[in-house]
Design a binder for these strands. Structure first.
Length: 704
RNA sequence: GGCGCGGUAGCUCAGCUGGUUAGAGCGCAGCACUCAUAAUGCUGAGGUCGAGGGUUCGAGUCCCUCUCUCGCUACCA
């Protein structure tokens, strides 16, 4: 494999139904940004795109909740997210959006082309449609009369009276459970991507790195977590996946296609094409000459950065689409990160357990690099990691302030104190310490820090790479302590000058490396040194700054974080979580589950509820949630399967008296026949509780 | 239940194709130093490498069984 001529770097499109939290940023955006900054420092041709993913059902639902249009939702979050990236100095060439006209055209064209070339499988079925709610009805949204037993309340998939399996079309007098109206029958067509047909080349590509008989990439360079998950999917066997939906918010299925009306592209098809439309926009803006070279030229290296939830889309589905389309290159690598937890718990939007980026950048605009540093040093590269504010404090104080910032400050202060900020030197003395200076640029294993940095970054090991920046600063501190210029100033002027001169060169190298990780800090360092930025190859250059050059007044790069800061942040988290819980409670109270359609007494009377006692309980094999109960019903013993294994231990079930729906049609689950259903009470958290009579009632008696 | 990542010092993590006394940073203890945001440097204490078997002259590193975290997936009337 030869060196690529250019790079196409993508970062997963954030979903525009909420703001960004630190987990998103640590997972996909900071790593990709570091990688891109590094490539650019080395003078590479890089195109780096992202954008907001603005379609899909979740956005329409959110819009309904907030009482505004989907467009308003995505406009709002697109703005917030874009601003967060800018404040964090994540430098996309473009932050596009999938609601843009160009994207709709691009995705639509893409779809049509694939369609015309027979790359999809089409399935047309007759489905019931609710005119009032403007949507197709899933099986369970339809009730009607069972053709076999004349039960009037059979569901679209099954009649619960006679137990027969049904399809909605068999029902007599069907009704929509949404509006209560009679639904109309409409034929609907959906398109599927036959992933099963792609299985073979995908396996060869992923496992061996071979594409069309040629070496495409070295499989060993893919991260274990990514490889593992992808292979797992391949082993299971790939299945066709629907790529269209009946929705009203998204990219239309092209009108040229029969049956396209009311159909939208499924978001996961639409979203990755967003990378391409973003690149097109970039070309229209005149920022790049031609978008095609970045997507269709074999000399381009395509890399997708993302979180683990997106692995399958980017390493199986999107590559299948690109391959089916033809002409497009496939990703060389898909470096996915795992998840970041927060203070011992999973980050959760619904519980508001998160550090929100837009809030952080607003509150601490002078601590951007601190966040970038901590999120990189603790990135979930191989396994889930954890962010705590205490760790944030420790890392800032003992690493950024005490090691990196302190060294630079020492040099600035000494140079100003002794030489009024002017770099002086003594050739002979400089020669005598050059060996020591070169040592500073070596790792403890005597590897060159510069080449190690290159190796690690190219392997996507950013936390280790960042640690090398600290290694350099530690070495530098040691060098300075060993040379003791504050002592030699009294005895050996030449030596003192040489040491400070050399130290200033180290500071410059620190600045160069910082450009990839800590852009604001790099700027401050260069400003302090009174110089323009420098190129990557000047790392370790001991004569970058010249004799007689004057540096600026010392200025602190970082400030210490105190206990109060940490306490305030933790408190804020707890308070918001609590507030959110209250809010959720209120919502629950205000919006109880809507009542189901009214039934007649006759309907109710059909249900035969009886009391019984659980006399035996065991776990159902090969099913995590199922328990198999033996229930003494008084007149007989029943075998009943319930999905409650997560709620109760076997011991606490035995001996409990329970209410049983005794005339429910039997159903076989995991080869065990379940003869009835046990009733449980469910609380707001979804936890189940036994509903037992307050005093002993004989088994087999009814419930009235 | 199936599959996958992970389970290594108090904390966060490295340990490639098996090879001498298992590493780093932070934290902790002691010493040195004073140019520096009480910062820095040196030294040290701290580990049955999740548990149990096996292969081997030799295993954190390979095989088997089990277990825990997280994720994907199935079942959940």
């Amino acid at each position: 494999m030869n060196t690529p001529k250019r790079y196409m770097i993508t970062a997963a499109l954030p979903y525009a139904n909420g703001p960004l939290h630190i987990g998103h940023v640590a997972g996909a955006y900071i790593p990709s940004d570091i990688y891109v900054k590094y490539l650019r420092l080395r003078g590479k041709d890089v195109c780096y795109v992202c954008g907001s993913d603005e379609h899909g059902a979740a956005i329409t639902i959110r819009a309904k909740q907030e009482g505004i249009s989907p467009q308003e939702i995505v406009d709002k979050y697109h703005g917030i997210i874009k601003n967060s990236f800018e404040k964090l100095n994540i430098d996309f060439d473009i932050f596009h959006r999938t609601s843009a006209k160009l994207h709709h055209e691009t995705a639509s064209e893409f779809f049509l082309d694939l369609y015309n070339n027979g790359k999809f499988v089409e399935k047309t079925t007759e489905q019931y449609y609710d005119e009032e709610f403007h949507q197709f009805l899933a099986d369970r949204y339809i009730t009607g009369e069972c053709p076999k037993c004349e039960n009037e309340n059979a569901y679209g998939d099954q009649c619960e009276k006679c137990g027969s399996a049904l399809s909605p079309l068999e029902l007599k007098n069907p009704k929509s459970t949404l509006s209560g109206n009679t639904p109309s029958l409409k034929s609907t067509t959906h398109w599927f991507l036959p992933l099963d047909k792609h299985q073979e080349w995908l396996a060869d590509w992923i496992e061996n790195g071979m594409l069309d008989g040629e070496m495409h990439h070295e499989p060993k360079t893919w991260k274990k977590n990514v490889m593992g998950q992808v292979k797992s999917w391949l082993q299971d066997g790939l299945r066709p996946r629907a790529i269209t939906r009946d929705l009203d918010w998204g990219v239309d299925v092209p009108q040229e296609i029969k049956g396209a009306e009311g159909k939208k592209l499924y978001v996961w098809l639409d979203a990755p094409i967003g990378y391409i439309s973003a690149t097109k926009q970039l070309a229209l803006d005149g920022k790049i000459a031609d978008w095609k070279t970045y997507w269709q030229d074999n000399d381009t290296e395509l890399i997708h950065f993302l979180g683990k939830d997106n692995i399958v889309f980017h390493s199986i589905i999107f590559p299948s689409i690109l391959k089916a389309k033809g002409e497009y290159i496939l990703p060389k690598n898909v470096p996915a990160n795992e998840f970041m937890n927060l203070e011992g718990d999973k980050i959760s939007t619904s519980k508001d357990w998160a550090v929100w980026v837009h809030e952080y950048v607003e509150e601490f605009p002078d601590k951007i690099d601190e966040l970038r540093y901590v999120l990189t040093a603790n990135a979930p590269e191989t396994k889930d990691s954890e962010f705590t504010w205490e760790d944030f404090q420790t890392r800032v104080n003992s690493e950024l302030v005490a090691t990196l910032g302190n060294f630079i400050n020492r040099i600035a202060v000494l140079t100003h104190k002794y030489y009024d900020g002017v770099l002086e030197n003594d050739i002979a003395a400089y020669e005598s310490i050059s060996e020591d200076l070169n040592q500073v640029f070596l790792t403890p294993n005597s590897e060159a820090i510069k080449s190690e940095l290159e190796r690690l970054i190219e392997q996507f090991k950013f936390r280790e790479a960042l640690d090398l920046l600290m290694t350099l600063a530690r070495n530098a501190n040691k060098f300075l302590t060993d040379k003791e210029p504050w002592k030699t100033i009294k005895t050996d002027e030449a030596q003192t000058k040489a040491v400070l001169f050399g130290s200033a060169q180290i500071v410059a190298s620190l600045g160069i490396i910082a450009q990839a990780f800590l852009p604001n800090t790099a700027k401050k360092i260069f400003n302090l040194l009174n110089m323009e930025s420098a190129s990557w190859d000047d790392i370790g250059n001991l004569n970058l700054l010249k004799t007689g050059h004057k540096i600026n007044e010392p200025e602190l790069l970082f400030n210490k974080i105190d206990k109060e800061f940490v306490a305030a942040q933790v408190e804020k988290l707890e308070a918001k979580k609590k507030a959110k819980m209250e809010e959720n409670k209120v919502v629950e109270e205000k919006k109880p589950e809507p009542l189901k359609a009214e039934i007649q007494f006759d309907d109710f009377a059909k249900i035969d509820l009886r009391l019984g006692t659980i006399i035996a309980a065991e776990k159902v094999k090969k099913a995590d949630r199922l328990l198999h109960f033996t229930v003494d019903m008084g007149f007989e013993t029943r075998s009943i399967v319930s999905g409650v294994a997560e709620h109760f231990t076997l011991e606490e079930c035995i001996g409990k008296q329970v209410q049983v729906v005794a005339n429910l049609a039997p159903r076989v689950m995991k080869k065990i026949e379940s003869q009835g259903m046990i009733l449980f009470a469910e609380d707001a958290q979804g936890k189940l509780h036994f509903v037992s009579p307050s005093s002993e009632v004989g088994n087999g008696n009814g419930v009235a």
